[in-house]
Design a protein around this nucleic acid. Structure first.
Ligand code: ZN
Ligand code: ZN
Ligand code: ZN
Ligand code: ZN
Lengths: 160, 160
DNA sequence: CAAATTCCTGTTATAAGATAACATTGCACC
DNA sequence: GGTGCAATGTTATCTTATAACAGGAATTTG
């Protein structure tokens, strides 16, 4: 369970031991579901595994296609429900700009206020812990979406 | 052209002289288009006026319906193109969480990094000037989405 | 001014994303 | 082992968005 360095390049954009991302995330997911008293059923688990294959957002229909091929239901609600479950329980996030989903990179069951860095070069998405920017008094924030699109370090290099 | 107080409640959430919002915005739009050398054609102008009727986001199809009723084209590309023009030129913004559009509240032609406060009570949206939260070095941000959903002051009062 | 060019508006058709409503199955608990 | 709820699956439909092409208006150019 590595704690990402908030000031360095997120590991999602660099070569890293991704098998650890996967095993950490799956282990966290099991624990979190147990703590919350919710069930990480086969479709749900498999959906998370599919998202975890890369730090790349997947559309609901991409996920659905995979699920269908693997013998799960093949109609949209199957994917939307599994994804909805994961998002509700903090195991995955929806990227609004992309209408897509990524596995959470730091699922510890804590409610966290994630921000996302979306590289338009390689398509990777990094999740970082960023608070909200300063907001006016008085408005009570319940949920926030913070998404930045641009170029990761590698892709800046490639462009030059 | 009022400069919103960054620390107080945004005027969008309070009773205010909305006719000024409209006339300011339309005047700014004319000027900005002139400066940029782009054309604020009738459909585009009307689309902006429709968005300006309230500080409430409208879906592309809502706008389209209005345009159609008023003798403009009634097929989706008509609305999407007008909205696209307004967004490109900073006269309107897309609210990703809602798949909807609002007129810009501070169009001065400056590129600005807006954040949005979305009240789930009354459906109003306020645009505020908020920088990005602190992001890791190295990632080059080109566009950012910052949207907070919650309750405005009035709706907090109403809920209590 | 007329031709050439570009931009704008409009259409048809289709793609992509998402949900409502209902039937069926599996599990949990008594 | 029956009752109740959660989860899965289906059909059907809805909403959001874009591709591709045709005609028209404005602008540029010779
Ligand atoms: Zn990884
Ligand atoms: Zn990249
Ligand atoms: Zn107003
Ligand atoms: Zn409100």
């Amino acid at each position: 369970m590595s704690i990402p360095d908030p000031s360095g390049t997120p590991r999602e954009f660099e070569p890293h031991d991704h098998a650890h991302c996967v095993s950490d995330a799956m282990a966290s997911a099991e624990r979190i579901c147990a703590e919350l008293g919710v069930r990480l059923t086969p479709v749900r688990r498999r959906t998370l595994e599919i998202l975890l294959e890369g730090h790349r957002p997947m559309g609901a229909y991409d996920v659905l296609e995979r699920l269908g091929e693997e013998g799960y239901g093949s109609k949209p609600p199957v994917a939307y429900r599994a994804l909805g479950f994961l998002v509700e329980n903090g195991l995955a996030h929806r990227i609004e700009r992309l209408n897509a989903f990524v596995a959470c990179s730091r699922a510890r069951g804590q409610s966290h206020a994630p921000a996302f860095l979306i590289c338009r070069g390689c398509g990777m998405v990094a999740e970082i812990a960023a608070g909200l920017p300063e907001l006016p008094e008085g408005f009570r924030v319940e949920k926030a979406t913070v998404e930045a699109e641009g170029l990761c370090v590698s892709c800046q290099g490639a462009a030059a």
